[in-house]
Structure formats: structure tokens, C-alpha cells
């Protein structure tokens, strides 16, 4: 039973950074912009949040610092992709390399000491319930924040006018521009939001998940988040489910290593990457299903015709 609880809670926790990053990217892609630089923005968020904690700031401030760092990094991409109309693949790639470099540069003085991790909540009565308490009511606040963001983003995209406008821009920026919507400005807002979410994901890694700083500590999670958006065929609920699936994979792999399975640890570590490939293949085979929710103008630069 304890093992079951450990796997269940571990899955939810491991999925949290993926939920943040992938939901953020979903909003960006729904507006028709493809930002491949999640990995770089996450690293910046992780570095800044970790720094804020070591500098003595409170946890909420540190997490906010992570979100701001992610947003600031995404602005670089925004200027290139939206104002300078560059190839979005290349600009995103540059952001990933740049973020990894700058975060490593900032992090050189951080040392290798862990910090005190974000506290788990303790809700009177609820947290003490048998079984349900440890399974649902003893996470840290960011786990719940991720779920709140999921509800908020689903509601925003499909139940508000602003969400409809955002999706319209992703489908046909020309039409939206002709109607009079500020396409570029809204896309900037989406990119910044995606950056802040990636920053939160990074902050979660460095102050809650593994509360220490290691160069390139995201280890591909930003790219997996990117794959999750495709896997989810651009739908929020599937992002949540996909993130839990990957979280579960990570935890099973860690449990496997802890149990001392007769398998090389590298093989277990490779499982999330292998799973990403397999899942992508399964999803991509059905072109129709992909096309259904795919933002039609994704990664195409838009210049308002004067």
C-alpha cells in the first residue's frame, strides 16, 4: 500500500513541471507561434528561482522570480519571431542554447548544496484522512497551482471570447487582422505567458522537485513538454493525462533503480525519451486527428499587410 501511495504521489509530482511547461506552450501554439526554446526558458526559471532562495527571499518571491525569468527569456524569442519575422525553428533553437548557457553562467556560484524544499501543505482534517490524505492533500502548493492553471487555461481557451480570439489568430492571422485584432500584440502576450509558465516549471524543479542547482538540470524535460503538446493533439485535458503518463514513467524508472532491478540504470533513464518517441509515432500516424486541432498557422511568420 505504501508503495502504491509513493508511486501515485511521485507521479503527480513528477508530472507537475511538465504540466506547467506544456500548458504554457499550448497557449503559445494555439496563437500560431512555435517556441522550441522551452528548455532554455525552464533553465532560466530554475536558475533565478534557486538564486532567489539562496539570497534569502521567501518561496513565493522565488517562484515568481522564476516565472519572470522565463517570461523575460521568451521576450528574446518574441522579438525575433514576431517583430523580426525570423524562422521560428531557428529562433527557438537559439533560445534553448542561449538559456542553457546563461543559466550555467549564472549558476556557477550556486554551489552544490541543496536548499530547503518548498513545504508540503498541511490542511487540517483533510491531510490526516487515511489513504486520501497522503494521496491528495499533502502536496506542495505548486502541484495544486498546476491543476488550477489547467482549469484556468481550459476555461480561457474554450469558454471566453479572448480565448476564441487567440485560437482564431492561430488559425488565420490574416482574417483576425482584417477584423481588427492586434495579432502581433496578442501573440506577444501568448509568448510571454508561455515563457512564464516554462519559468514556473523550471522553478518547480530547482526549489521543490530536486531542491538543488545542477547545470542543465532540466535534462530534456522542456523537449518532452513540447512533445506532450503534439501528443495531446493541442487539447488541455490530454496534456494533463499525458503529463501524468510521463510522470508515472519517471517514477517507475526511479522505483526500478531503487529496487535494484537487474537492468542497467542507463536503460531505465532512457525510458522517458523512448516513450516520447513511441507516443509521438502512435499519435502522428493519424494525420486527420492531428489536423483537427492543429493551429493552421503554426510557425508561419505573419506580417500585417499594409
Amino acid at each position: 500500500m505504501d508503495l502504491f501511495i509513493a508511486i501515485f504521489t511521485g507521479t503527480i509530482i513528477a508530472a507537475t513541471p511538465l504540466i506547467f511547461a506544456a500548458l504554457g506552450e499550448l497557449v503559445v501554439e494555439k496563437s500560431g507561434v512555435l517556441n522550441l526554446g522551452i528548455e532554455g526558458m525552464m533553465l532560466m526559471g530554475a536558475a533565478l528561482a534557486f538564486w532567489a532562495v539562496t539570497a534569502g527571499y521567501s518561496m513565493p518571491v522565488a517562484i515568481l522570480a522564476g516565472a519572470l525569468a522565463g517570461a523575460a527569456t521568451s521576450l528574446l524569442f518574441g522579438v525575433l519571431a514576431l517583430t523580426f519575422l525570423t524562422n521560428q525553428y531557428a529562433a527557438g533553437l537559439a533560445l534553448a542554447i542561449f538559456g542553457s548557457g546563461v543559466s550555467a553562467f549564472l549558476g556557477r556560484g550556486f554551489g552544490s548544496e541543496p536548499i530547503e524544499a518548498l513545504h508540503r501543505v498541511n490542511i487540517p482534517v483533510l491531510s490526516d484522512l487515511p489513504l486520501i490524505g497522503p494521496m491528495l492533500f499533502r502536496f506542495d502548493a505548486m502541484v495544486y497551482l498546476a491543476l488550477v492553471m489547467f482549469v484556468a487555461i481550459s476555461w480561457f481557451l474554450y469558454r471566453t471570447k479572448a480565448g476564441l480570439v487567440l485560437r482564431t489568430i492561430g488559425e488565420s492571422p490574416q482574417t483576425s487582422h482584417a477584423i481588427g485584432y492586434p495579432v502581433i500584440r496578442i501573440r506577444y502576450a501568448a509568448v510571454l505567458f508561455g515563457g512564464a509558465m516554462a519559468g514556473l516549471a523550471g522553478a518547480y524543479l530547482s526549489v521543490a522537485y530536486t531542491p538543488l542547482w545542477v547545470e542543465n538540470m532540466t535534462a530534456g524535460k522542456g523537449w518532452i513538454a513540447l512533445a506532450l503538446v503534439v501528443f495531446a493533439t493541442w487539447r488541455p485535458l490530454r496534456i494533463l493525462l499525458g503529463a501524468w503518463l510521463f510522470g508515472g514513467m519517471t517514477i517507475l524508472q526511479l522505483q526500478g533503480q531503487a529496487l535494484g532491478l537487474e537492468v542497467p540504470s542507463e536503460l531505465l533513464s532512457a525510458l522517458p525519451y523512448l516513450a516520447t518517441i513511441i507516443v509521438l509515432v502512435l499519435i502522428s500516424r493519424d494525420r486527420q486527428m492531428l489536423a483537427l486541432h492543429f493551429p493552421a498557422s503554426l510557425a508561419k511568420p505573419f506580417r500585417p499587410a499594409s
Binding site: L76, L80, F84, A91, A94, F98, G101, A104, R108, E215
Partner: peptide, 22 residues
Amino acid sequence: LPSAMTRIFQGFLLFFLLAADF
């Protein structure tokens, strides 16, 4: 200076190249 300098410079180089193209 840390070796991360190289990656920062690489990032800048690509950023500026893309922007200059515009």
C-alpha cells in the same frame, strides 16, 4: 570565466544573425 560563455556567445550569434536577416 566559466565555459558557459561559449554557449552564450553561440546564442547571441544566432540571435543577431536572425535579426540581421530581417
